[in-house]
């Protein structure tokens, strides 16, 4: 009779208890979540259009279904959501007005807030700080060793001379533009970053035990990272 009991236990564990909309609340409440998400008819136009689905076992259709089934946490912990290339072809073709790429982006942020995804975004150490100090996502001085190497000798030599090339065009060597963003505007930008979730997102790394400095290893040797905000102030 032991087997029968075991089988019964299995049946008990697959019984769904939560209601559908409850488990999806965090996603559905996001203003960017499209109406079409619940209307998904599993047609797979998204998959058939997706550059990532062609390479990986990435499957936006299945992910929409998993969400629908309430398996949110599983998705957030997994690697799959990080394979999307954010090209939005799925959204432009979905016959039910859904935006799988957009929903996946919402999932990525959720995953980071929960702490799972932080190691997937090691460049945050560089780029988040760059925005805070200079006002740009990217500027010529943020590229770490190894970023350019792959592109061959021409590219490496070009980047060695990049400061000169930029000067020739009237651009600053280490700033994105011809003149830096004025300090006044930077103060305004920092006020925005401080008062919105940006700072919390940053603090979230430490809170989840992911040291920003350790993340730099993912990028190869690199000394751009500045001390934490607290010390700066």
């Amino acid at each position: 009779m032991a087997e029968i009991k075991l089988l019964e236990e299995k049946v008990g564990s697959i019984r769904k208890k939560e209601t559908m909309l409850e488990s999806l609340k965090e996603i559905l409440d996001d203003p960017r979540c499209p109406d079409g998400f619940l209307e998904c008819m599993q047609c797979a136009t998204c998959v058939a259009s997706c550059p990532a689905a062609r390479i990986y076992e990435f499957n936006p259709r299945e992910m929409m279904r998993q969400l629908y089934e309430g398996n949110l946490e599983e998705l957030l912990k997994g690697d799959r959501i990080w394979e999307c290339g954010q090209c939005y072809t799925c959204m432009s073709r979905c016959p039910r007005g859904n935006n799988p790429g957009g929903v996946i982006m919402i999932l990525r942020y959720l995953s980071c807030w929960r702490g799972h995804g932080l190691k997937k975004i090691p460049y945050a150490t560089v780029l988040m700080w760059n925005l805070y100090t200079k006002g740009y996502s990217l500027s010529p001085d943020v590229f770490w060793d190894g970023f350019i190497d792959e592109f061959g000798e021409t590219a490496v030599n070009m980047w060695k001379n990049m400061k000169e090339i930029r000067k020739e065009l009237g651009y600053l060597p280490d700033d994105a533009r011809m003149e830096p963003i004025p300090e006044e505007s930077m103060k305004e930008l920092r006020a925005i970053l401080d008062e919105t979730l940006y700072r919390k997102y940053w603090d979230n790394f430490e809170k989840n035990g992911v040291a920003m400095k350790d993340l730099l290893d993912h990028l190869g040797s690199f000394d751009y990272y500045k001390p934490a905000w607290k010390e700066e102030k």
Partner: peptide
């Protein structure tokens, strides 16, 4: 010069909250 980055790169690279 006062215009800052739109932060679109960071947004799609998952490092700037929507708000």
């Amino acid at each position: 010069p006062k215009q800052t980055c739109c932060s679109g790169f960071n947004y799609h690279a998952d490092i700037i909250p929507w708000e």
